[in-house]
Amino acid sequence: MLTTTNLRAWLDCLHGRLVQEKDQLNALDTAIGDADHGSNLLRGFQKVQEKLHDNDPPDIPALCKLVGMTLISTVGGASGPLYGTFFLEVGKSIAAGSTAVAPESFATALAAGLRGIQRLGKAELGDKTMVDALSPAIDALLANQSPATAAQAARAGLAATIPLVARKGRASYLGERSRGHADPGAASAALLFDCLATATPSS
């Protein structure tokens, strides 16, 4: 079972990794974007930490909603609405009042989050976006694989973005010149699953 405590550990881990890896994400974004993906996400997850210091959401849906709304109102760019919608949709997919959720139900909720991202951003697998890391990782969880395996799938998805030509977002303006660079959104999505593996008990 995943508990509210696991999910808060997930968010703590994400914040910590973003502090450490902000500059690396910015550097990836410098190559094919505008050099601020790490700074923007860190601003959002920093605010999440501050809100969680002052609030104690009673259940998992409330926690996810707080994270989603905070990201939407602090991150900006495309990643704010996309990651914000992800957490909002995950929260909506879990029954109100739940303080623990079975891994299968959590995988289903993450899949709903991914659908929210795709509805808003209209990206498909292979467009060189965060979807390329999120999708294989969530598929692994849906197939009852461990969070660690899902994290590996996200890393493989990230690596697979390197040879691709971007078709969505600001990198798409570079056309062929976007080839040879990893997608910053896929890199932050891989962090999401690294931290999920850290924060959840392996079954």
Partner: peptide, 29 residues
């Protein structure tokens, strides 16, 4: 140079220009 990044968004030689530029310091075509 984005003051928050502190470094230029790309490098250009003395005799080079970037054609088809956007407004965010993203390289052109």
């Amino acid at each position: 140079t984005n003051p928050q990044a502190g470094q230029p968004s790309f490098q250009l030689g003395e005799q080079e220009i970037e054609f088809g530029i956007g407004i965010h310091g993203e390289p052109g075509r």
